[in-house]
């Protein structure tokens, strides 16, 4: 989350056409709020009904990241956050810059 938050802090300066959503799976809102306040994360935490969104996206392990293009198609996805994941994200995000 810290990496993603930093990435978002950077990207949002340059891109009005990019949205980051941190889709929580199963935490109570107060837990999310507390963590966000503690850490000062910049990206938006959102909640899903049950695990509906996780399931619709086939997510079985956390974290999993997706990047969807402007047409709603999957551009990239990755399970886990390894060294290099952030760099991949940057490249994919850059590919949709107009």
């Amino acid at each position: 989350m810290p990496h993603l938050s930093d990435l978002w802090s950077e990207i949002r300066q340059e891109r009005q056409d990019v949205v980051f959503l941190a889709v929580d799976a199963g935490d109570p809102p107060e837990v999310i709020r507390e963590w966000w306040e503690e850490e000062g994360f910049t990206l938006t935490p959102v909640m899903q009904e049950g695990y509906t969104v996780s399931e619709a996206f086939g997510v079985q392990a956390y974290p999993t990241n997706y990047i969807l293009g402007p047409d709603g198609r999957v551009l990239w996805r990755r399970v886990g956050f390894a060294p290099g994941t952030e760099e991949e994200m940057r490249k994919v995000l850059a590919s949709t810059a107009r």
Partner: peptide, 17 residues
Amino acid sequence: LADLEGKTVLLNFWFRH
């Protein structure tokens, strides 16, 4: 997602507990 049409969307699936 329909609200975000035309935007590039990064979805980060996570949980805390």
